Computed example of a mutant assay.
Amino acid sequence: MPVFERLMALLGLLVIGVGLRITGVLDDSRAARLNSLTYYVALPALIFISTYQQSITELLSRALLEGLIIVVVATVGLAWIIHRNASTQYRSVALVQSYHSNLGYLGLPLVAATFEARVTAIASVILGIVSLIQVPLTILILTMMSDANTRFHHELRRLVTNPVLLSLLVGLAVGSTGLAIPSVAATGLDALGTLALPLALLCVGSSLNVDLSAVDLSATGWVVALKNGCMPALAWGVFSLLAVKPATFTASVVMFGTPTAVSTFVYANELGGDEQFASLNVFVTTFISTGTLFLLIRLVS
């Protein structure tokens, strides 16, 4: 399927998710079960099947690690400067949503559906490394800039037991040790992994809830500029200078070109941020990413 048609299909699934929520088909209970199926089954299966045949030394390089850190830190620094004069009500959310990427529910499944297996395997590693950076950073920023009572250490414990990270570690361990996996099990996991993208998009769509009243459109505009434009542009420049292999370059640019993660809305709700503003930013960056990701995929291809 051509890239444009694939992205239009993704947008269609997002719209279907929104429609299912509005009509009540995906109520809170059903949406929670769908999210659990995606988070605990489909995504871990996709990550494992993408990495279990390759050694960690083949996927993780010093240049990749350095590049990921540089891009995240540079984007956070720019966001801090740009949002320093934003309304106190929106500042913390605008800051974290400018860099916190939707790597799991959109980035990795999209890469898997678009590129070859090696690119997908590297994208899985990127998901694990960047999650270990952006999730604690987001929790720390929201906790420090609000009156949240949620304990920072409690949130970090949730990160350690993250099924996405655990499946990545298991997959890399199997690949590095050369342990054989029965073909029946591999086939079943591969089938489950193919469900990750459609299920994740339905989850994202069902979670989008936009209230356009009393929002800071300027702050949202800067979030879009940083997340959809600046971050992938930084990734392009940084990984070009680092002269990484084509598969690493492709995976890095596309993964950083993903929109703001839906989880930032959850964190904002739990840690004292403005949840309506967070929901708007997730919706806008996700909608615009259908165009920006199309451009990025065409360019790196």
Rank of each mutant, 00 (worst) to 15 (best):
V3W: 12
E5T: 11
L10H: 12
V15D: 08
I16D: 00
G17S: 09
V25Q: 05
R30W: 14
R33C: 08
R33V: 14
S36I: 06
T38R: 05
V41N: 11
A45T: 08
I49F: 13
T51E: 12
T51S: 06
L65S: 14
G67K: 00
I69L: 10
T75R: 08
V76H: 10
G77K: 11
A79F: 11
H83P: 02
V93H: 00
H100V: 13
S101T: 15
S101D: 12
G107E: 01
L110D: 06
A121F: 05
A121V: 01
I122D: 02
V130Y: 00
I141M: 04
F152S: 07
H153A: 12
R157P: 03
R158G: 14
T161H: 08
N162R: 06
V164F: 12
S167D: 03
L169R: 10
S176L: 01
L179F: 07
A191F: 08
G193S: 03
L201N: 06
S206A: 14
S207V: 10
L212F: 07
A214R: 04
L217M: 15
W222G: 02
M231D: 08
A233H: 05
L234D: 07
A235N: 09
W236N: 01
W236F: 15
S240I: 04
S252W: 07
M255T: 02
T258G: 03
P259A: 02
P259I: 04
F265V: 14
L271H: 01
L271P: 04
E275S: 12
Q276I: 00
F277K: 01
A278R: 00
F283L: 14
V284C: 09
G291W: 06
T292H: 01
I297E: 12
L299N: 02
